[in-house]
Amino acid sequence: MQNPLDSAALTEALEKVQRAGVPGLFAEIRHGDEVWRGAVGVADLTTGRPVAADMKHRIGSLTKTFTTAAVLQQAERGTIGLDTPIGTYLPHLVPGLRGEQITVRMLINHTSGLAEYLPYVYTSLKAFPDLARTGPECFDEHRHTHFDPTELIRLGVGAPAFGPPGVTPGLYSNTNYLLLAALLEHATGTTAEECITENVIKRAGLHDTAFPTGPHIEGPHSRLYECWFGMIDPPRDYSVFDMSYAGPSANLISTVADLNRFYAALLSGEIVTPASLAAMQQTTQVISQELKTISYGLGLYPTEAPGRETFWGHGGSVWGGGTLAMTRADGRRQLALAMNLQRWNTLDPSGRPQPHPIDKALADFYDLALYG
């Protein structure tokens, strides 16, 4: 029988991604009781410091799975109703008819119809680049800007709706998850970060996963290089950044080992009940930030291919950093990957990302990592 974790082949596939243009990346793959960890490339382009598989990393939207788990735990306790209108709990944040029509479940699976607030942060607060109108200069100007989540929610709720509540395909929107964080605070009397830490992170036995307390990543980590679709050349380091612009929708720091541990615990029923887990795996159609239609559940989405096993997990992106974690439905095989380059694709005149060698190399690595 072929070794399910072929170290040489996995290392070679990871090296091909690095040679295609990613400064550094690292991963952990689990198959049953076997574990493979790999790291290639550099964490610092200036010093040549290498990446290591145990480095801390900003995991971006993988945070959404943690936030969802905390909300579902409250639903299990009866303090939150998944099909209760959000206006019942937060009428000051989602007033009027939309507050009566948008349910908690619609926030979790991105079918609320609420707009993404980030473009309006630019137009209202001049804080982040609007791809159609400006370059990346605002990244540098707002590295240390601290945003009020209520103001960000106001921007998203006040923007033109993507569509009516509950209609599919929905729109992947961070506005939904800032509202879920506010809901957790309303239901528990603590901050969302405290609730998630106590009830999800600690329950999963994670020792290297935490919310940031400032703009720095504590502990050994890589610099994070942002290309912004070729507008930043050479790529610039944004590892030091105030993540209040994302909050509990995308601001956790973790390791690839902790991510595999978390998703294994989640899919084995250790974090939420089997009924809640089944609800997480009921998908609907959502338009992603890459303008692709994807299947999305409650804080999880599947990786599916005809004739192949289904994996569940999430991907994430911050300025300069990307992460993916996927666990097979039976829990027997897992992948967690972190990389220190983002938005490497240039854009065509219509604004669509153009193919890049990194895309093919990553796809090949994922194929080998997931299916052997």
Rank of each mutant, 00 (worst) to 15 (best):
M1S: 15
P4R: 07
L10A: 07
T11K: 10
T11A: 12
T11S: 15
A20V: 01
I29L: 14
R30E: 13
D33K: 05
W36Y: 09
R37F: 02
D44P: 09
G60H: 01
T65H: 04
F66E: 04
G78P: 07
R98Q: 07
E100I: 02
Y120E: 07
L125V: 01
A127Q: 09
A127P: 01
P129V: 01
P129L: 04
C138L: 14
R143C: 07
T145K: 06
L152N: 09
L155Q: 09
A161V: 10
T168S: 13
A182S: 10
A182W: 06
T190H: 11
C195E: 15
N199M: 04
N199L: 03
N199A: 10
I201T: 10
K202S: 11
A210H: 12
P212N: 03
P212F: 00
S222G: 05
L224C: 11
E226V: 01
G230W: 02
M231V: 04
N251K: 12
N251D: 14
N251T: 01
I253H: 06
S254A: 10
T255Q: 03
T255G: 07
G269V: 05
Q282C: 10
Q282W: 00
V286S: 03
V286Q: 08
S288T: 13
L298I: 09
L298T: 11
L298Y: 03
P302W: 00
W312N: 10
W312G: 11
L324G: 01
L335Y: 02
M339K: 08
R343W: 14
Q354T: 13
Q354S: 08
L362V: 12
A363G: 14
Y366F: 15
G372C: 04
